[in-house]
Design a binder for these strands. Structure first.
Lengths: 223, 223
DNA sequence: GCCACCGTAGTACCGCGGTACCACGCCCCT
DNA sequence: AGGGGCGTGGTACCGCGGTACTACGGTGGC
C-alpha cells in the first residue's frame, strides 16, 4: 500500500487527485496540504511514501517545500506536478531533490504509474520535458558545490556561479549585452556566453524571464 | 436535473470535475470535450444546461467556443472556469456571452452553487473579479475622470491608457508579443503598436526597461 | 458635424538577443 | 600530470523585438 500526501492550493485540483487516487486499491491519501509549509508539517507528521506537490502555492512554494522535505532525510519522495512545462521549474524542482516531475496535462494513468514509480524509488519525468532537461544538463552541470549556508538564496539561483549571479544582477537592472560588456570590461561575446548559461541554468527562455527571476528572487530590489 | 458538459483540455481536471458533479443528485455530466471545437459540436448535439468551459484549450479556445455557442441562441449557458483571474479573460469571456466566470481556485461548493445559479439563468462572477469588472465597466461610462480613489498610481504610468496599462502588466509577466496576441485575442501587429506606444510614453528603450518599470511601480508584484 | 483619441491592424526594415559550437588559460583537486 | 570547472573570447546564424508609417472604425467633446 502506497500512502500519498496531496499538496496543492487549488481545492478543486486536490479533490480531483483524491478521487483519482482513492479509486485505486493500492493507493491511500493520508491528507491534503494547501501550501508549502503545511506540506512540510504534514509530511513530518504522517510520513507519506509520496508527496504530490504543486509548485505554485501561496507562501512557501512547492520547490522550497520539496527542498526541505528532502533535506530531512526521510524516505518520503516528492513528485512535482505543475501546470506548465517550463524548464525553469523542472530544473529547480529536480535540483531541490524531487523524484519526479509531471505536468498536469497528463492522462490519469500516467499520474498513477508515476506515483507508483516514485514510491519504489524510481524517477519520473514528463516526456515533454525530458529532452530539454537533458540538453540543459549536458550543457553544464551544477558545480555549485558548497554554499550550504547560503540561507535565503532562491533555489533557482543555486546553480549559478558567483560571476553568473553578478551578470544576472545587471541583467536585472536592464543593461544590454553591450552595456554589460563595456561596464564590466568584457567582450560582448563573453557576456553572451554568460547570459546563455544563466538562461540555461535557470530555465529562463530569454533575458526578460531572467529579469523577472532577479526581482522575484530579490537579487535586485524594486526602486 | 441539470445537465452539464465539461470542456477542459486537461484530463485530470475533467476527471475531478466529473467526480465532483456526479456526487450531486441534481447534476448530470453529459460528456467531456477537450477543446473548443469539440465543445461546440457536443453542445449542439447534447444541449446541456450548462457548459463548464476552460479558457486555455488547444485549437479553438474557450472564449471563441463560448461566443459560438451563445450565438446559436440555444438555451445552453456557459460558465467559464479559468486558472487565472486576469481581467482580460473575464472581459473577453463576458463579452463573448458567458453567464459566469469563476477561478479554479475555488471551493467545490462555490463551483456547485455557481453551476446551479447559471442553470437557472443567473450570472456568477468570482468575488476576486467582481471589483475589477465593475471598475472596468464604470470606465465604459464616463471615461474615467473622477477616479476618486486614484490610489498610488506611479506618475510614470499616468500617460498610459487603460489598455496600455493592461498590456504593460503582461509585459511585466514576461509574455512575448505573440503570447500577448494569442492570449488577449489580438493581432501581433496590434500588440507591437501598443508596446511601441508604451515604450514611448514611459521613456523605456525596450521591453526590459518596461518590465523593470512594471515591478518598480508595483504594477506587477514579485512572486 | 467635425476633430481628437483610442484600439485595432498591416507592411517593411534592421539590429540586438540568443543559440550552437569551438577554444584557451587558470586554478584546484586528485 | 591530468582533469574539471570556470571565466574569458570568437564566429555564424536566425528570429523576435522595436521602429516607422499608414489606415480605419468607434466614441466622446466641442
Amino acid at each position: 500500500m502506497t500512502t500519498v500526501l496531496i499538496a496543492d492550493d487549488q481545492p478543486l485540483q486536490r479533490f480531483g487527485f483524491r478521487m483519482l487516487l482513492e479509486s485505486q486499491d493500492d493507493l491511500t491519501v493520508l491528507g491534503e496540504a494547501s501550501n508549502g509549509s503545511e506540506a512540510i508539517r504534514m509530511t513530518a507528521q504522517l510520513h507519506p511514501d509520496v508527496v504530490l506537490m504543486d509548485i505554485r502555492m501561496p507562501g512557501l512554494d512547492g520547490i522550497e517545500a520539496t527542498r526541505r522535505i528532502v533535506a530531512t532525510g526521510d524516505r518520503t519522495r516528492v513528485l512535482i506536478l505543475t501546470t506548465f512545462d517550463l524548464d525553469e521549474y523542472a530544473h529547480a524542482g529536480l535540483r531541490a531533490g524531487a523524484s519526479g516531475f509531471l505536468i498536469k496535462d497528463a492522462q490519469p494513468e500516467e499520474l498513477l504509474s508515476g506515483i507508483r514509480s516514485v514510491a519504489t524509488g524510481d524517477a519520473v519525468v514528463a516526456p515533454s520535458l525530458t529532452r530539454r532537461l537533458l540538453d540543459a544538463y549536458a550543457h553544464h552541470l551544477p558545480a555549485g558545490g558548497a554554499a550550504e549556508g547560503a540561507s535565503q538564496v532562491d533555489p533557482r539561483l543555486s546553480a549559478l556561479t558567483e560571476r553568473e549571479r553578478e551578470i544576472l544582477t545587471v541583467i536585472g537592472k536592464g543593461w544590454t549585452n553591450s552595456e554589460i560588456a563595456a561596464r564590466l570590461h568584457l567582450a560582448e561575446s563573453t557576456v553572451k556566453t554568460h547570459v546563455g548559461r544563466i538562461l540555461a541554468k535557470t530555465g529562463s527562455r530569454d533575458r526578460i524571464q531572467a529579469v523577472i527571476l532577479a526581482y522575484d528572487s530579490k537579487l535586485v530590489e524594486p526602486a
